[in-house]
Design a protein around this nucleic acid. Sequence first.
RNA 1: UCCUCUGUAGCUCAGCGGUAGAGCGGGUGGCUGUUAACCACUAGGUCGUUGGUUCGAUCCCAACCGGAGGAGCCA
Length: 466
Amino acid sequence: MKFGRWFRYCVMPRTPVAEILRSETPPGAVTVMGWVRTKRDSKAFSFLEINDGSCLSNLQVVVDAAIAGYDEAVVPARTGASLVIQGNIVESLGKGQRWELQASKVELLGGAPEDYPLQKKGHSMEFMRSIAHLRPRSNLFGAVFRVRSRMAYAIHRFFQERGFVYVHTPIITASDCEGAGEMFRVVTMDGEVVKTGDEEFFAKPTYLTVSGQLEGETFACALSNIYTFGPTFRAENSHTSRHASEFWMIEPEMAFCDLMADMDLAEAMIKYLVSDALETCIEDLGFFNQFIDKGLIERLEFVRDRSFERVTYTEAVELLKASGESFEYPVEYGLNLQSEHERYLTEKHFRCPTTVYNYPKEIKPFYMRKNEDGKTVAAMDLLVPGIGEIVGGSQREERLEVLLANLKDHGLEESGYGWYVDLRRYGTVPHAGFGLGFERLLMFVTGVANIRDVIPFPRTPGVADF
RNA sequence: UCCUCUGUAGCUCAGCGGUAGAGCGGGUGGCUGUUAACCACUAGGUCGUUGGUUCGAUCCCAACCGGAGGAGCCA
């Protein structure tokens, strides 16, 4: 990765720390801009650790007390202060780093008083959430959000390389993707009065989207292979480490596609993303591996290199019954698999990502395709160790009569799904797709255990700070 | 929404029915090509809120508020 092009657009020409540290030869004269992570003073000179977010590592800066700006810039520069440093990159005399910056001039952009909340020591994740505006300046969160950015890019690459068309499905919607959870209402405000009924801005009740799937299907039934990647909103009052009220979801949808190919794509995508992270984010992953999850890199390499397991729901139930494990919740055909059951499959039985498919139709939404057995639908969940469901998908019911019957069976009015039903009325095709929770993927890739710590500004029930 | 745990210094925590302590961080001084540096000194807290029990509550009880973990639901 080169920073050269970016460099030209920068108003204040500077060299990113990542570029300096990566250099094989002495980079010579540079200007570095960044934030002080720590300072160690001596009588004749100071050591500064500078971080600019371009990579995990800091650049060690040696400042002789005799240089220009020492008293004005270096003496008052505490942890958190922002600096411009000009100087020469030389081989470090000390241990622990190859290059260091011998400063010739230092300018203080912004000081940080002694109440700067980030200390040199580690902080709890809970405390970091309370200073969400400053936490990207920490090692952990800088790494998390660099990986987040890279994974977003890799997702686009994965689909674009395969000819998928990126579709922007609406954020405000009038359709409830049935079974996808509680929705936020969209209303206009007139003072304290919430307008309803005839005064609806859109002439009907509208919501923040819980899924772009239904809209995505319409584009798949025209452009063949599409994907969405955008924010999603769920108004569920859930307090867990895996749920947020606002999160990002990736939803590919493929025409002329059945459940088997759908599962192939989901597995290939997970492998691609894990492989890309190992290739491009290894420094950040190394940090997670050391401080968050000792087995992380080994697990990611395992996921990249080994094939995933695949079992039907029926087989999974039999497996669980024969396991001899004592589960808190019963294992019975027709019941949803509980978190503890999913964990057993991925963490104890198979010890790898596992796709479970062909679920009983009673526990799945109306749009999933009914199988020949009359009992199950072509649904699939991709489960990963430590997190559980990371992908949920299905082949969609493309037969008009069957879909109409499904709507009825689920107690839904056909009138509410007119345009969706039309897809089956005009040139219907077999098609399938899935949803990937972006934050759950990030939890899996980084080892970070709480969804709130992989979203820049998390929204959960009762919390919309920052 | 349900269950469990939790709230004491800026942070992480200890503590006790008689109104509080450590480590780190901060400040000051010293020292050193330092590496989450080191040494000395120092400042800093109506113990989440409101009631109750008690001669007396930070400690016991209740409610509320905040935080965390789990369940359900899902991504």
